[in-house]
């Protein structure tokens, strides 16, 4: 008897649930779609969305903090020291710039948008923008170059820095004979534990 009740119970239940399900889908047939026509209509991004990085190179002091923070090593920074007579200007937050930044490349293809480079920047000049459509046909184009020094500028800066370094070294040598660094023995490799 129990089984008979279960049999008919199952049938009525399935009919009922099918009707409920059809009701749900029917209601949704007339609810407005939640999707948007993407390239023409865009959804509003969340406030702290992380997309394409931007570097305001004018404010960059070349401290390399961002590059160090990056877990995938996709920021490449090279610096040249400036000489005391150079005036590189100040950042918008007021600190004085002391380093030339001849190379500032972000390989955005490697970037995982973690945003870890953004927080350590002392001048807040590297930050996320709301741009997220930047696909390219050539992978090389995804290496963004933010540095703005021309080759000749770089050369003069390098020469100056070299000269300054040499002068400094000469000064040091003149001041006192530099104590020789202790001679270090190369550590022998661990003995091969042959079995």
């Amino acid at each position: 008897m129990n089984q008979v009740a279960e049999y008919f119970g199952n049938i009525t239940q399935s009919l009922k649930t099918i009707a409920i399900g059809m009701g749900v889908t029917f209601r949704h047939l007339f609810t407005p779609a939640v999707t948007v026509q993407y390239p023409t209509v865009k959804m509003k991004l969340p406030e702290r969305a992380r997309n394409r990085l931007y570097v305001n190179i004018d404010d960059c002091i070349g401290c390399d903090q961002c590059s160090k923070a990056c877990p995938v090593d996709c920021i490449e920074i090279e610096i040249i020291k400036s000489t005391p007579e150079d005036d590189l200007g100040i950042t918008s937050s007021g600190s004085k710039k002391k380093l030339h930044v001849p190379v500032f490349n972000i390989d955005i293809a490697k970037c995982c948008y973690c945003g870890l480079c953004v927080y350590p920047c002392p001048t807040e000049c590297i930050y996320m923008t709301p741009v997220y459509e930047f696909s390219e046909f050539d992978r090389q184009n995804l290496i963004y170059n933010y540095a703005r020094m021309s080759p000749s500028e770089i050369e003069t800066a390098q020469l100056k820095a070299k000269k300054m370094d040499e002068e400094l070294a000469a000064k040091k040598a003149a001041a006192a004979l530099a104590p020789k660094p202790p001679v270090t023995q190369p550590i022998p490799p661990p003995a091969n534990t042959a079995i």
Partner: peptide
Amino acid sequence: MAAHMQDRVAYM
């Protein structure tokens, strides 16, 4: 129908 039942719009 499939799209609208899932709150989408299908091809436009």
